[in-house]
Design a protein around this nucleic acid. Structure first.
Length: 524
RNA sequence: GCGCCCGUAGCUCAGUUGGAUAGAGCGUUUGGCUACGAACCAAAAGGUCGCACGUUCGAGUCGUGCCGGGCGCACCA
């Protein structure tokens, strides 16, 4: 989002809230049938003051969710309870749905708090419940039927369903093939599948549905910007909302496992809105983070022999196996704070904490961004917790060093720039063609490439290009920093040239970091 | 069976549209702080780019076929 905006695009950040799905249903089942709790009980639990992470509502639900998973395993017949609960939540207007609504809202709050720690925020939270209740599907259904995108099957395996036919029907040939290429959109019992709902949602994104959500302001984020959420309750709606939807293209950031359903969604939308801007839209697939066997052991998992041999082990919420973002950030902040306190005893605790938070965010964000989207990230605690080498803090450190030069000099970069203006082109040329001139040119040239790298990164939807570039620039700056001691330079002209090189690099470093969502601390 | 992704140094990964002796980080070995703070720098060791053909003046990169690993292919979301 930051990179696309910097490249001149207008971007709206939405987060799809699947508040009527199986995960919510399972937690509801856990509260209602494993723990026999009422809505008031759950409310009390959510409202109790939490002194440890384990007592927080989201941690409680995470743990409960895996318990429900195990409970289903004991007796598959219990899955009937999930189906019923899911149905009641979709229906709305009953106690089960009320509990579901409460839980999902609270979890969204927790999620936003966690994301805020990483400087992540959203413009709009679009809820699945509204897509159902505001009849998005009914409108999309008519359009799909009218366009011939879906047809009603009167015979065969899919009898009684509305299906989207496979593109290469003839090439398919074999009737008895194990897998059917046709995609069912409406089931024989008349209910709509996920793909159908998602097609409706995407038609809305492009302003092609002829319907809109109601909106209300949910909260201000950590930068005091408004975060809006959809609502099906017209009386709660606020009309002073920013414009949402009506996009010219959409980018769905979902893991690569969703490639097949996403391809179907795009196909469905294309049949109604055959437009180059839709063609430009894409499923921006990324690979998941998995655990190294060592990390899995550290999380308390007992490895089978087969697992220990594996390269990676998938995380699973159902099994309760995963790294919780808040835990990881906590550890990063603790480690960073220790380092800061060892180095900067003069700063008060609040400033130390602030710096520690900035470093922790840099470490985690860079750790995730240093990989390409398509490579599976094998999560290792040592790598993720590191502040040395190819890490976010390394780059921050280079930028802070550059700033320290000016701090020690007693002049701001702007003042130094004014001094520099007094130097003639000839004098400058002499420095840059003199001893070490090539080193200076090489750094200046590399620093000047940020914009080009940003374009490549935006065009390929690949933030890692910026990340790799930022690291290389920091590395080159550190070399320069060691090779040329600026404040000790006696030649006044030369010193001012070196200062300008340092300032140029500093600005590019900070810009690159900000594109990655990383701040530059005042001290390190 | 069909489709997608991956295979590059001991480990984790980069490698723009095909272009010169294939690059980082970590780890290992060695050296460097009277400091613009060493969260750093320098040096060394370490690679048949999974295998085999093909296209090309030239292939880690493009094509085909194998081998190995991961993930999809619901009237679930």
């Amino acid at each position: 989002m930051r990179i696309l905006r910097a490249a001149g695009e207008t971007v709206e950040v939405h987060n799809y809230i699947d508040n009527t799905g199986v995960q919510v249903a399972d937690v509801v089942v856990g509260f209602m049938h494993l723990e026999n709790r009422t809505l008031d009980d759950i409310r009390a639990l959510a409202d109790r003051p939490a002194t440890t992470r384990a007592e927080s509502f989201d941690y409680y639900c995470w743990e409960l969710y895996s318990r429900v998973g195990a409970w289903y395993e004991e007796d598959k017949a219990r899955l009937e309870l999930r189906a019923r609960t899911l149905h009641e939540i979709e229906e709305g207007g009953n106690p089960t749905a009320e509990i579901g609504e409460f839980i999902s809202s609270r979890i969204v709050d927790c999620h936003l708090d966690t994301m805020a720690r990483l400087d992540i925020s959203y413009d709009l939270l679009a809820r699945e419940s509204e897509i159902l209740h505001l009849h998005f599907w009914a409108h999309a259904f008519e359009k799909l039927k009218a366009s011939g995108a879906i047809v009603f099957e009167t015979e065969g395996r899919n009898k009684g369903c509305w299906v989207m036919k496979a593109e290469d029907e003839t090439a398919q040939g074999a009737e008895e093939s194990e897998h059917d290429a046709d995609k069912i959109i409406v089931r024989s019992n008349g209910t709509v599948t996920y793909t159908g709902k998602d097609i409706a949602y995407h038609l809305w994104k492009l302003g092609k549905l002829g319907l809109d959500f109601h909106y209300r302001m949910l909260r201000h984020d950590h930068h005091d910007r408004e975060v809006w959420i959809t609502t099906g309750d017209e009386s709660a709606a606020q009309s002073n909302h920013p414009p949402f939807g009506n996009g010219t293209a959409f980018l769905n950031v979902i893991d690569v496992g969703q490639s097949y359903p996403q391809a179907n969604v795009k196909r469905g939308v294309m049949m109604i809105d055959h437009d180059e801007r839709v063609a430009r839209s894409a499923h921006l697939a990324y690979e998941k983070v998995t655990l190294t066997p060592a990390a899995a052991v550290e999380l308390g998992m007992e490895l089978s022999e087969a697992d220990a041999q594996r390269q990676q082990i998938g995380m699973s919420g159902r099994k309760g196996l995963g790294v919780k973002a808040d835990d990881l950030i906590d550890r990063l902040e603790e480690n960073a704070l220790r380092e800061v306190q060892a180095r900067h005893t003069d700063l008060d605790i609040e400033r130390q904490r602030h710096i520690a938070r900035q470093i922790a965010v840099a470490a985690l964000r860079f750790f995730l961004l240093k990989f390409t989207r398509t490579s599976i990230i094998a999560f290792d605690f040592n790598d993720a917790l590191s502040f040395d080498g190819e890490t976010g803090p390394y780059i921050q450190y280079a930028a802070v060093r550059a700033n320290n030069i000016f701090r020690k000099l007693g002049r701001t970069p702007d003042e130094a720039r004014a001094d520099f203006k007094a130097i003639t082109a000839e004098q400058c040329n002499e420095i840059f063609s003199g001893e070490g001139g090539d080193d200076l040119w090489s750094l200046v040239y590399f620093a000047a490439r940020l914009n080009e790298v940003m374009q490549v990164s935006a065009a390929g939807f690949e933030p890692t290009h910026i990340a790799k570039y930022a690291f290389q620039l920091a590395k080159q700056f550190n070399l320069f920093y060691h090779s040329y001691h600026i404040l000790r330079e006696e030649n006044e002209t030369r010193r001012q040239c070196l200062l300008m090189v340092a300032d140029l690099t500093r600005r590019r470093l900070e810009k690159a970091l900000s594109l990655l969502g990383i701040e530059t601390p005042e001290r390190m």
